[in-house]
Simulated assay, not measured.
Amino acid sequence: MARNTARPLSPHLTIWRWGPHMLVSILHRATGIGLTVGGLLLLTWFMLALAGGAQGWETFTGFLNWKLGPVPLILLGLVALTWAFFQHTLSGIRHLIMDIGAGFELRTNKTMAYMTMIGSVLLTAVFWAVLLGKGA
């Protein structure tokens, strides 16, 4: 198919100035992928542990045993999965607001993007503070 030279080419990312709204949009896609892969693996293991009897359940709960202290890499992965959940949820709410036609003004859009990023970090911190506080 021949290109119509009278029409301009689509702009590339290099001509756009990066902003928080672009980052949140990319994070929404990335966290969706992360939740799909990581969450599905964890959920599958959980379901197999339920179906596998006492030994399978003990293995799964041993993985999440907070009294002995979690393995730092496992804890980091679970915190990342939790952050991805909150980031994706808040970003989804932001997109829902934009879908109804609100929040397109540049200042409002940037504010919502910053609130999404800050909110996800705060909600993750509160979630894990409560979770680890109950385990002590």
Rank of each mutant, 00 (worst) to 15 (best):
M1R: 06
M1K: 06
A2G: 14
A2M: 09
A2L: 10
R3S: 06
R3H: 07
R3L: 12
R3A: 13
R3D: 12
N4Y: 06
T5I: 06
P8Q: 08
P8T: 05
P8H: 07
P8S: 10
L9W: 05
L9H: 04
P11C: 00
P11A: 12
H12M: 05
H12K: 11
L13D: 06
L13S: 10
I15A: 13
R17L: 10
R17P: 01
W18R: 07
W18M: 10
M22I: 07
L23N: 00
V24P: 02
S25H: 15
I26Y: 10
I26L: 14
I26M: 11
H28W: 06
H28M: 05
R29H: 14
T31D: 10
G32F: 08
G32C: 10
G32K: 08
I33W: 13
I33M: 12
L35Q: 06
V37L: 15
G39H: 08
G39D: 06
L40C: 09
L41Q: 09
L43E: 04
T44F: 08
W45E: 12
F46T: 08
F46S: 07
F46E: 04
L48T: 02
A49T: 06
A49Y: 05
A51L: 14
G52F: 05
G52N: 03
G53L: 04
A54Y: 03
Q55M: 04
G56K: 01
G56F: 01
T59I: 11
T59G: 05
T59V: 11
F60S: 02
F60H: 05
F60K: 01
T61S: 14
G62I: 09
F63M: 15
W66T: 11
W66Y: 08
G69E: 05
P70V: 12
P70R: 13
V71T: 04
V71R: 07
L73K: 03
L73T: 13
L73S: 13
L73A: 15
L75C: 04
L76A: 15
G77W: 01
G77D: 02
L78Q: 10
V79P: 00
V79C: 03
V79L: 14
A80P: 00
L81V: 05
L81D: 01
L81Y: 05
L81M: 12
T82Y: 03
W83L: 11
A84L: 14
Q87C: 12
Q87T: 05
H88L: 02
H88Y: 13
L90C: 08
S91Y: 01
G92P: 04
I93V: 15
I93Q: 04
R94E: 06
H95V: 05
L96S: 11
L96V: 10
M98Q: 15
A102W: 07
G103I: 01
F104D: 07
F104P: 00
E105M: 02
E105Q: 09
L106P: 01
R107T: 12
R107H: 12
R107K: 14
N109P: 00
N109E: 08
K110F: 06
M112G: 02
A113Q: 01
Y114W: 15
M115K: 09
I118Q: 08
G119Y: 12
G119N: 11
S120V: 05
L122S: 13
L122P: 07
T124H: 11
T124P: 04
T124K: 13
A125N: 04
W128N: 10
A129W: 11
A129S: 15
V130R: 08
V130A: 13
V130T: 11
V130S: 09
L132R: 02
G133W: 13
G133N: 05
K134W: 06
K134P: 00
G135Y: 09
A136D: 00
